[in-house]
Simulated assay, not measured.
Amino acid sequence: MNGSEGYAVFFFPQALEALGEAIKPYLAQGPGEPHVLCREIDTAGALIEMTLEGQTPEGRTVQIELMVPGQMVRMIVSARSDGAFGFGPRATPAVGTT
């Protein structure tokens, strides 16, 4: 993921403890709490399905699907770069301008 699109998935501390070493390779460290960065997410079922990009030891890019119970997820944050996201006022072009 290029850092400008996708989702950041944050877990409850108890969930991170329960998942243990299995979740650690997928966690991103940065300002704030550890989280999983993913390109796509599906919250329709009992499991939260996350699609991540990874690399093999040979350097090939692979897609990884990570699924965790929905009760483990505390918050999902959209990490989009377009300016059209949100509820604030948006500037609109004046009529007749191109």
Rank of each mutant, 00 (worst) to 15 (best):
A46M: 02
G54Q: 05
V62R: 14
F12N: 12
P93N: 05
A28H: 03
T92V: 11
A28G: 03
L37N: 06
A44Y: 04
E49L: 15
S81T: 14
T97E: 09
T97P: 02
Q71Y: 05
P13W: 00
A44D: 14
A22V: 14
A84N: 07
G20R: 06
M67N: 15
P57D: 02
A28P: 00
P89R: 15
A8C: 06
E17T: 15
L19G: 02
T43V: 02
A91T: 08
L37W: 02
Q55K: 12
I41P: 04
L37K: 08
L47T: 00
A28C: 03
V77M: 07
P57E: 07
I64D: 12
E49A: 15
R74A: 14
P69S: 11
A79S: 11
N2D: 15
L47S: 03
L66I: 11
T92S: 09
S78H: 01
E65V: 15
L47K: 04
S4W: 10
E49F: 13
V36M: 04
L19V: 06
V36G: 00
R39C: 01
G96S: 07
E17G: 09
A79Y: 08
V68N: 05
V77N: 07
G20K: 08
M67W: 04
A79V: 15
L27N: 02
V62C: 11
D82R: 05
E58V: 02
V95Y: 01
T51F: 05
M67I: 08
T56D: 11
A91R: 11
T56A: 08
L27F: 06
F87G: 09
T43Y: 06
P31K: 02
G88P: 02
T56Q: 11
E40R: 00
E58H: 00
M72H: 09
F11I: 07
V95P: 01
H35G: 01
I64F: 07
F85K: 12
T56R: 04
L47F: 01
D42Y: 12
G6Y: 01
L47Y: 07
A84F: 14
G83I: 15
F87Q: 08
P57Q: 04
G88H: 09
P69C: 11
E53I: 03
F12I: 01
G30F: 03
A22W: 13
E58M: 10
N2T: 14
A8W: 01
R80P: 09
V95K: 03
A44Q: 09
R60S: 09
E40M: 02
M75S: 13
A8S: 13
P57W: 05
A91L: 10
T98H: 10
T51Q: 14
L16Q: 12
M67C: 14
D82Y: 00
M50E: 13
E17S: 13
Y26Q: 05
F12S: 08
T97G: 04
V77P: 00
T92N: 09
M50Q: 10
E21V: 03
G45N: 12
S81E: 15
T51V: 15
A79P: 01
Q29I: 01
C38L: 07
R80S: 13
G54I: 09
